[in-house]
């Protein structure tokens, strides 16, 4: 294709988007909404998988104690845990150790912890508990939790271990994801039909032009191109807006949850890692939806 022909198709396609005004706006919005939801689910999945990996690598029970639990009490609890038959070893993790560990996990982002020193350390003391058999981890965890029942202060604030949390999370997210995919599919189809309606309007508005093109010997491909361009551009605009908004929002989420998640030794998938899979999929899909929308109308209404 000549460059002048190519730029002509782009120009004509763009003109039609502008001329179709509200219809184009509706198409772009519906593409944006459906892809936004899709993008949210993609980010969710990426993070759940990352979370699962992180949890599985911690085949350990973590016990967190209430703040200001006295030292004797801590020693007592440690002894009691050691008495549990499934438990192999117990290591005390002071809140000071926890802060250091967190600094390490955060790496270059550790500056969020600036200002937290020994005196105002917000982290609790706790234990890392290893079991003999990974399969026994939930039994051991239950027994540790049960220690609170005989303790009037209920000093154990929280007992966490990977497997259970992961299973629960997967159950919830799988459900959400399936519903989400149905919604996304429905919205994508809607977007496609809106685009195809928009293209149909263009075909109608340009019927005289099309008739003359045919008469003077323009090829079918030449006549069709601007309509594909219109569809593809509509999809591209919608998806670029979505990708930009979504990724900017995600960057914000990473920033604002870094400290809270860091405290639990987790972090979100970094933006650089999510950028291409999520952004690329959204833009690619959006463009495809647009092209399919125009194919629908061109095949039906543009008899050439």
């Amino acid at each position: 294709m000549r460059f002048s022909t190519f730029s002509r198709h782009i120009r004509e396609g763009t003109k039609s988007i502008i001329r179709n005004g509200w219809m184009s706006f509706a198409s772009i919005s519906s593409i944006a909404v459906s892809l936004f939801i899709l993008g949210v689910f993609m980010l969710l999945t990426l993070n759940v998988n990352r979370f699962a990996d992180q949890v599985e690598s911690q085949a350990q029970i973590r016990v967190f104690l209430e703040l200001d639990t006295p030292e004797e009490k801590i020693a007592g609890i440690e002894r009691q845990i050691k008495l549990i038959p499934e438990v192999k070893s117990v290591v005390f993790v002071s809140k000071h150790d926890a802060l250091e560990r967190l600094r390490e996990t955060l790496g270059e982002n550790a500056d969020v912890l600036d200002g937290y020193e020994a005196e105002n350390n917000p982290l609790p003391d706790g234990f890392d508990v290893d079991v003999f058999e990974p399969r026994q981890i939930s039994i051991a965890a239950e027994k540790i939790k049960a220690l609170n029942d005989t303790d009037p202060d209920r000093s154990i604030m929280r007992v966490r271990y990977g497997e259970e949390t992961v299973k629960q999370l997967f159950r919830i997210t799988n459900g959400i994801r399936n519903i989400g995919l149905v919604i996304v599919l429905g919205l994508a189809v809607t977007a496609m039909f809106l685009i195809s309606t928009s293209i149909r309007m263009t075909i109608y508005a340009r019927r005289r032009e099309i008739a003359i093109m045919k008469l003077v010997g323009a090829t079918n491909g030449f006549i069709r191109w601007p309509f594909f361009v219109e569809g593809a551009l509509t999809g591209l605009i919608g998806s670029l807006i979505t990708a930009a908004g979504l990724l900017a929002g995600y960057a914000q989420v990473i920033r604002s949850t870094r400290l809270d998640l860091g405290l639990m030794m987790f972090d979100l998938v970094p933006l650089e890692e999510a950028f291409w899979p999520v952004g690329g999929t959204i833009v690619g899909l959006g463009t495809l939806i647009g092209i399919f929308g125009s194919i629908l109308s061109v095949r039906k209404y543009l008899r050439v």
């Binding site: 000549r2 003359i212 093109m213 003077v216 030449f222």
Partner: peptide, 9 residues
């Protein structure tokens, strides 16, 4: 127009 749409130079 008649020349453009047949892709004349």
């Amino acid at each position: 127009f008649a020349m453009e749409v047949v892709e004349a130079p």
